[in-house]
Computed example of a mutant assay.
Amino acid sequence: MNLSFEQLPEAVTNLTKEVSELKQLLISKEQHSAEQPEKFLTIQQAAAFLSLSVPTIYSKVSKRELPFMKQGKRLYFSLTELTEYLKNGKKKTFAEIEAEAELYLSNNKKSAAL
Rank of each mutant, 00 (worst) to 15 (best):
E65I: 04
S78V: 01
K73V: 06
K70Q: 11
E10C: 03
A34I: 03
Y58P: 01
L15A: 13
A101K: 13
K60Y: 06
A48G: 02
V54Y: 02
S20T: 15
V54A: 04
F77V: 02
S33T: 13
L79D: 03
P37N: 15
K23T: 14
P67A: 07
E21R: 07
F5D: 10
E10L: 07
Q7Y: 04
P55K: 04
N14G: 02
E65S: 08
F40V: 03
E65C: 07
V61F: 01
G89S: 05
S53D: 12
V61L: 01
I97K: 14
Q31R: 12
R74F: 12
S51L: 10
L26C: 13
A46C: 09
V61S: 00
R74A: 14
L103K: 15
P67Q: 07
A11F: 10
T42V: 00
V12I: 15
S78I: 04
T83G: 11
N14R: 07
F5R: 14
L15T: 13
H32L: 15
L41Y: 06
L103G: 12
K39R: 15
A99D: 15
H32S: 14
L50W: 02
T16K: 09
N88E: 12
Q44R: 13
E100D: 15
L26F: 09
Y85D: 04
E84I: 06
T80G: 04
L22K: 08
